[in-house]
Amino acid sequence: MAKSITQEFVKGLWEEIPPFRLVLGLCPTLAVTKTIQDGIGMGVATTFVLVCSNVLVSAMRNIIPSKVRIAAFIIIIATFVTVVELLMQAFTYPLFLSLGIFIPLIVVNCIVLGRAEAFASKNAIMHSLADGLGIGIGFTLALASLGAVREVFGSGTFWGAPVFGPSFHPFSFMIEAPGAFVCLGLMLCIMNLVGKK
């Protein structure tokens, strides 16, 4: 582990950006990216859980017996997810309504458990913090870009404001579930084209 803290942070933004490179966390990626707001809201919530659980798991990595580590990780993650859920209900209720069931489902988001198991349980606190933050921001960026594409084509708006003239007829296929798959597939394809050089 010769990587510096900055390297751990940066890798989450491009090299290991979750839905596009790791192809993890697809359930929220497909389900809540109807608009860019929803995408960012989901990304921020996941980032919060990711950073907190990474730090705590890393701090407790020498205390938790390896036989029950998954159970312990899940307790930690579920706690933070419930914290996010309660805070969202209290302060950003409309966002909570539009994300719905997908907030509690962050518990089973494989990115969060994956980082806890694969990274935080083996690395120091600061490294884990940087890793969680990097991956979280990468996830947010991915969700926001997918949400932006789907919102612009699917409803003709960007952040709620119309981008095309009134003669535009929204390509409503894009904001439906199959559109999410097609759109994600095309973005993966573009990522591979750009990354391959």
């Binding site: 205390i63 938790i64 017996p65 036989k67 029950v68 159970a71 312990a72 307790i75 930690i76 579920a78 706690t79 419930t82 914290v83 309660l86 805070l87 209900q89 209290a90």
Partner: peptide, 23 residues
């Protein structure tokens, strides 16, 4: 194992209960 999981759960339960009351 028992001690760690118990303490962790208790801590988690306490945190959530107080947050729930607060919000």
């Amino acid at each position: 194992m028992v001690v760690v999981l118990t303490v962790l759960s208790a801590f988690s339960g306490g945190l959530l209960a107080s947050l729930r009351n607060g919000t």
